[in-house]
Lab assay of single mutants.
Amino acid sequence: MDALKSAGRALIRSPSLAKQSWGGGGRHRKLPENWTDTRETLLEGMLFSLKYLGMTLVEQPKGEELSAAAIKRIVATAKASGKKLQKVTLKVSPRGIILTDNLTNQLIENVSIYRISYCTADKMHDKVFAYIAQSQHNQSLECHAFLCTKRKMAQAVTLTVAQAFKVAFEFWQVSKEEKEKRDKASQEGGDVLGARQDCTPPLKSLVATGNLLDLEETAKAPLSTVSANTTNMDEVPRPQALSGSSVVWELDDGLDEAFSRLAQSRTNPQVLDTGLTAQDMHYAQCLSPVDWDKPDSSGTEQDDLFSF
């Protein structure tokens, strides 16, 4: 819950932080000083300027060897085509990944977070970031790969997607708890209302004896509580940590079903599988986004697919 609360507080303090972009060759504004600060901008989305290598189908939802083989196929196909790589912007948030063309600003792909089953910074092609997700059109699994400016960037994108998945799962947990509370309150309110109706004398007997209905007592009954809980029953509950912020979080049926399955089948359902080692994760978390744009010590960066 700490990640969720800190993310909400950060967004309320400075929503404009989320509009910064990394990996864009110096076009961005001043960047936060450390990885923790940038992680807090996830709610509205972190932007990464990358190059799209392509996509291939895979048979399993996750796995280092599986993704490595898929990336190898994608890279080989991209090299064989001889075409310049498409420059894209990857927007990562707890909602998922939005992929747009840098030149036309046209939407290429919009992947809900619950469809993503794996992401990684490839070991062999260490400047490549990739994720595996279920197609929104059918049940097939797709591996999408992107060329980053350097290994640090690939690791940073991988960690960002993993963190977005974690925050999304926490949102789901909060929403589920809130819905259970509202359902319980609604049920209790309905029981109270039913009890009051059972003990209320029939209207005919009131008229016969000349008694008047006590409207004041009726007004004191917990009807307002019942209506408050039943009027918006169809509205999706939102985490309290975000009250007053500009973010509107809505959970669709697909996300609810997917996270429910994860909660039942996995020990740590909030953790998205990645190909990063503990050492890689520690190294990337210690980086400032400013470091992502620094040239690798191995030599001059080449803006070309064939540089790796």
Rank of each mutant, 00 (worst) to 15 (best):
E177S: 15
A3H: 10
L223Q: 11
K181H: 14
C119K: 01
T38M: 11
E257T: 06
T104L: 05
K79V: 05
L213A: 07
L17D: 12
Q163E: 08
I116A: 00
E178A: 12
Y52G: 02
M153W: 13
E59K: 15
A3S: 13
D304L: 05
R196H: 07
N102A: 01
T158H: 02
L99Y: 12
T56D: 01
A7T: 15
E180D: 14
Q173H: 06
E188D: 08
A195Y: 02
K51E: 01
S6Q: 14
S112G: 06
A121V: 00
R115N: 09
S81T: 15
K294P: 02
M153Y: 10
H282K: 15
A278G: 09
V111G: 00
A68M: 03
A156W: 14
A219S: 05
A162M: 06
L305D: 08
V167T: 13
L272G: 03
S307I: 06
A168G: 05
L85R: 00
T158I: 10
R196F: 02
Q136V: 13
S246K: 06
M55F: 10
E188F: 03
R115M: 04
S67P: 01
K91A: 11
L4H: 06
R39W: 04
G63N: 14
L42W: 07
W22P: 11
K30Q: 12
R29T: 15
V161Q: 01
M46E: 14
N211P: 07
L213H: 09
E188M: 03
D126E: 00
D273A: 11
V161H: 00
L251D: 06
K166M: 06
D214G: 14
L305E: 09
V92K: 00
S186F: 01
I12S: 15
L147K: 11
A154L: 01
F165I: 02
L90D: 00
L4V: 14
G45K: 01
D234P: 03
P222W: 13
E142W: 08
P239W: 05
I108E: 03
E40R: 13
R73L: 03
Y114T: 02
T38A: 12
H282T: 10
L206M: 11
I116L: 02
G190S: 05
A68N: 11
G254H: 12
K152I: 06
H144M: 15
L251S: 08
L42K: 15
D296M: 04
V271K: 14
S288C: 12
K166R: 12
E109K: 07
S112D: 05
Y131P: 00
Q163L: 11
R151E: 01
A278D: 06
A76D: 05
A154P: 02
Q60V: 13
S297L: 15
Y118C: 02
Q302T: 14
E59T: 10
K83C: 09
K184N: 14
V111K: 09
V248Q: 12
L262K: 03
L50I: 15
L90A: 05
R9K: 13
L305A: 07
Y283T: 08
K184Y: 06
I12V: 15
F171V: 15
A208K: 06
S93A: 10
R39K: 14
L213I: 05
G96I: 02
T267C: 08
V92L: 12
F165H: 02
V226F: 11
E301D: 15
N110Y: 03
D273V: 04
S205E: 09
F48C: 01
W249H: 04
T225M: 13
A130G: 14
V236G: 12
K83F: 06
P269R: 03
K181I: 11
Q285T: 09
A80M: 06
E250T: 14
D2Y: 14
S93G: 08
P222H: 10
V248A: 05
Q60A: 09
T77K: 11
P61C: 13
F165R: 02
Q264H: 03
K30D: 10
S224C: 07
E109W: 06
S246L: 12
V161T: 12
S175D: 15
D2S: 01
L212C: 10
T38P: 06
S227N: 11
Y283E: 04
Q155M: 13
D296A: 05
L99R: 13
H137F: 06
L193S: 05
V111T: 11
G63P: 13
Q134L: 12
E216N: 12
S14K: 08
D252Q: 06
A195H: 03
Q86Y: 13
D291W: 11
